[in-house]
Design a binder for these strands. Structure first.
Length: 603
RNA sequence: GCCACCAUAGCUCAAUUGGCAGAGCGCCUGUUUUGUAAACAGGUUGUUCUGGGUUCGAGUCCCAGUGGUGGCUCCA
């Protein structure tokens, strides 16, 4: 469902109206509360309040009960147009509403002072039962259009939210609710939330022994366990091979650098909020690197370059360290140390468009190979009124035009968002949503005229003139950590065989089959498969159960018949029992599934 | 960082108004030798996150800290 249709839908009106009902109930519970705004959102609605005290579970339960009562009262939603002065009088005790009225009267401005709505003196208010709100609507006609059994405000806990999204302004209490057309839809929604928890990469990461985050090591610093490290290594090797095919050159650089490097690059101080404090080394200051590009620039400038050398594509799985506010850390998707599948392309201006397209094509290939079709492409341009950017306007303009041209030529479905650029240049980002519908930036391509200038990078052109190359920063995964976090949720922990940390487990039926199980293990390992014979002293059924829970693609049961006939009895993680297969046939069939990178595991 | 909530065994969770800290799974030992999602028996598992306070007595109440969760802000 598109946003526009949602905003015109009955469900939108139901949620918007439920928000008003919630505000009415909250004001009964907290008569001295000040009300702010209460819009519908995806899957529900919220309303922000300035409360005299923290809201408790008991308050929320009371409010939900009271809402159902109000809804059942069959109150009309009546709209009335009023003047600004009337509105100011009506909401004289509501400072947030007064601010909204002033904005409406003066014409609304965005954060940069640009008008986004014309000034008006015609305001509308909506009233239901004993509650009146400044609101442009639309609403349902009557509370009877809301099903009281399809409304809940207890599913999501209340949260702090800054007035108008501004950290420097008062923090209000945001109470979340959800409303649906029918109780069945509400039940479905609850079900979806429960399913989302099961897919959550933090839950699966623990269940599948992929990674841990240990408080003694530190917040936001994940530790990769053998199974997770195997998955990560598989992805790295895959991408590395693709990149070598496409003419990338490997480089390796250290995680620390002299502060002069970052002063030259401009990261220091532009990146100050995200950097860790400098480290004293024999009187010089060093920094944990927040980015890999400065190191790569120095590799470029380590020797003279001819136009014939370009493009140069330096690739490195480079680990970077960035300070993130503690409240922002989350599993693998937001961490303080992460590895960028980074590459920097040093290109001649005449190569920029093709190289940019090549990179986008690579990213599309990576996403496509993993079946990740549900992403959006965002061109981040600079916010014309902010001073947080470096480099001159003409170069920014040139880079922006190049990105848009490349996306147009590729037929990429993108949208442009001002203010989303990197500080050194505009970029194209690939954004996906996790199970809880939060958006995360994964792949990114950035055009940069600035760093070549700051590092005084040059090449000698055909005409024997020294010229400046253009840089493209790019990372198809974005970061290994975030990408794998999303990948875990994408596959719900059931990885395609080529990615599965353990591809098959061999389970002997009796202890007397251990030798044959080991033989099978050895043979499959010699074919490059990640397999293990489970020779624990436990019964077969409990082993099946244990490995089944770990989403191992293939369970190979071996008993007398298998040992005699050199077969394995194949059980899929989908619980299909394929029966006995000649060992060689299984090895070949499994290899075919692995090499073709398919999700399908049946033969 | 801010607001709110949460923290009991390796895991999932229980413990009445403040009154002896428990269960299942796991783990260990023994028995069992099993043909497709938990064999049987016995045993083991605790700084109830940390530090203070109130109380005759605190897992439970209060304060502070740490960690986690949801959201906000940020995400170059």
């Amino acid at each position: 469902m598109t946003e526009e249709r949602y905003e015109e839908s009955q469900l939108y009106k139901i949620r918007h109206s439920a928000a008003h009902v919630m505000a009415e109930a909250m004001l009964e519970r907290f008569p001295e509360a000040k009300i702010a705004i209460g819009p519908p959102i995806e899957d529900g609605f919220y309303y922000d309040f300035d409360l005299p005290a923290a809201v408790t579970d008991a308050d929320i339960k009371w409010v939900e009960k009271r809402m159902k009562k109000i809804i059942s009262g069959r109150h009309e939603f009546s709209m009335r147009a009023i003047t600004a002065d009337e509105a100011r009088d009506l909401f004289r005790d509501q400072p947030y509403k007064l601010e909204l009225i002033d904005d409406l009267v003066n014409g609304r401005l965005d954060d940069n002072g640009a008008p986004i709505a014309d000034p008006t003196d015609r305001l509308t208010i909506y009233t239901q039962n004993k509650f009146t709100d400044l609101c442009r609507g639309p609403h349902v006609a009557n509370t009877k259009d809301i099903n009281p059994k399809a409304v809940s405000v207890t599913l999501r806990p209340p949260a702090g939210a800054y007035w108008r999204g501004d950290e420097k302004r008062p923090q209000l209490t945001r109470v979340y609710g959800t409303a649906w057309r029918t109780p069945e839809e509400l039940a479905d929604y609850r079900q979806r939330l429960e399913e989302a928890v099961k897919r959550d990469h933090r839950v699966l990461g623990e269940k599948l022994d992929l990674f841990i985050i240990d408080s003694m090591v530190g917040k936001g610093l994940p530790l990769w366990l053998p199974e997770g490290a195997t998955l990560r290594d598989t992805l790295e090797r895959w991408l590395r091979a693709i990149q070598i095919e496409r003419g990338y050159l490997p480089v390796v650089t250290p995680h620390l650098g002299n502060i002069e490097l970052y002063k030259t690059s401009g990261h220091y101080p532009y990146y100050a909020d995200s950097q860790y404090s400098p480290i004293d080394v024999d009187g010089d200051e060093f920094m944990l690197r927040p980015m890999n590009c400065p190191h790569h620039c120095r590799i470029y400038s380590s020797q003279p370059r001819s136009y014939r050398d370009l493009p140069l594509r330096y690739a490195e799985f480079g680990t970077v360290y960035r300070y993130e506010q503690s409240g922002e850390l989350r599993g693998l998707t937001r961490v303080r140390g992460f590895t960028v599948d980074d590459a920097h392309l040093f290109v001649r201006p005449d190569q920029l468009l093709d190289e940019f397209k090549g990179v986008v094509n690579l990213i599309q290939h990576v996403f496509g190979a993993l079946g990740m079709a549900d992403f959006r492409a965002r061109i981040g341009t600079r916010d014309p009124d902010s001073d947080k950017y470096v480099g001159d306007n003409a170069l920014w303009e040139e880079a922006t035009v190049a990105i848009i041209a490349a996306c147009d030529e590729l037929g990429l479905d993108y949208h442009i968002e001002p203010g989303e650029a990197a500080f050194y240049g505009p970029k194209l980002d690939f954004i996906v949503r996790d199970v809880l519908k939060r958006e995360w930036q994964l792949g990114t391509v950035q055009v940069d005229y600035n760093l070549p200038q700051r590092f005084d990078l040059e090449y000698v052109d055909k005409d024997n003139e020294r010229k400046r190359p253009v840089m493209i920063h790019r990372a198809p995964f974005g970061s290994l950590e975030r990408f794998i976090g999303i990948l875990i949720e994408h596959f719900a922990g059931a990885f395609p065989p080529w990615l599965a940390p353990t591809q098959a487990i061999i389970i002997p039926i009796r202890e007397s089959h251990n030798d044959y199980a080991s033989e099978v293990e050895t043979l499959l390992k010699s074919r490059g498969m990640r397999v293990k014979a489970d020779l624990q002293d436990r019964n077969m059924r409990s082993k099946i159960r244990q490995h089944r829970r770990m989403n191992i693609p293939w369970l190979l049961i071996v008993g007398d018949r298998d040992a005699a006939n050199r077969t394995v009895s194949v059980r899929l993680r989908s619980d299909e029992d394929l029966g006995a297969m000649p060992l060689e046939a299984f090895a070949d069939a499994a290899a075919a599934k692995i090499n073709s990178h398919v999700q399908e595991i049946g033969f």
